[in-house]
Design a binder for these strands. Structure first.
Lengths: 138, 138
DNA sequence: CTTTGTGCAAATTCTTTGCACCAAA
DNA sequence: TTTGGTGCAAAGAATTTGCACAAAG
């Protein structure tokens, strides 16, 4: 479990001013690598922070993405999902339960940005989908 | 330009009953490889079909995806986009103008589905993003 | 007839915005 | 104080749903 003080310093490394809310959101992301939606983060934290508003969660994640501390995933057509691991790795989304998992053993060359005379390519996202083992048995 | 009769037969190949609306939507997709949103399709067709409803466009695209005639793209966080070309190719989305372009010269091995003991992987989507040349000059 | 498709309106869901209050420097 | 952060309520946008009517076989 990442302690709060460590999370605080983690935010500082990205030039993010640590507030109580920002630290709580980042700590949740660091300790729960489930690529949560805004709602999942809000639902997890609000019992411990009754005054927390969903707007603040939106603001906070926008700031984290802007500062490069988290990656916004475009894999779930229903909601935005966020990943605190910004290293080159792929994702798998189960079409049945909707959970998103990391896939780390993808050839690194897949993440190299191709040259193009038509576009200035700045980022790549590799997304797999199918059925996870938990759902296969149903 | 794909003529209507040809589009009609194209739908039959996917076991899709051709109605006037379905044929018009498919013909638009075949002739406009711009990965349109629901709204773009609706806006393009409704002048020629004043009674067309957006619900029908939604229903039609859901059916096309279900029948495997078009691919639903998850690249634009704002709207769903649809691609009539279901072959293995990547996409590029411009962060400035929002247009989505095909990228065909990606190594085919990138589209091979990896084996996994945790998931049954059924599909892959490779999405690049950045700035297109038209937007670079602004 | 009977089944399937269409389209209107309302409802739902996710996200954004405007603004007032609160907190930290 | 002054600046920036938070949170409520309302607005906005995309999508889905319920239902009645139309079309096709």
């Amino acid at each position: 479990m990442t302690p709060t003080l460590q999370t605080h310093n983690y935010l500082l490394r990205f030039s993010i001013k640590p507030s109580v809310q920002r630290t709580a959101v980042m700590e949740f992301l660091l300790n729960n690598r489930i690529h949560p939606t805004i709602d999942e983060i809000y639902m997890a934290l609000s019992p411990h922070m009754p005054t927390l508003s969903k707007t603040t969660v939106y603001n906070t994640l926008d700031l984290f993405v802007e500062k490069g501390a988290v990656r916004a995933l475009v894999i779930d057509e229903k909601n935005a999902r966020y990943d605190v691991d910004t290293s080159a790795h792929a994702h798998f989304m189960c079409n049945s339960c909707g959970k998103v998992h990391d896939i780390f053993d993808v050839n690194p060359v897949f993440f190299q940005l191709p040259e193009s005379d038509k576009f200035k390519i700045q980022a790549v996202e590799i997304s797999y989908s199918g059925i996870c083992n938990e759902c296969k048995g149903n």
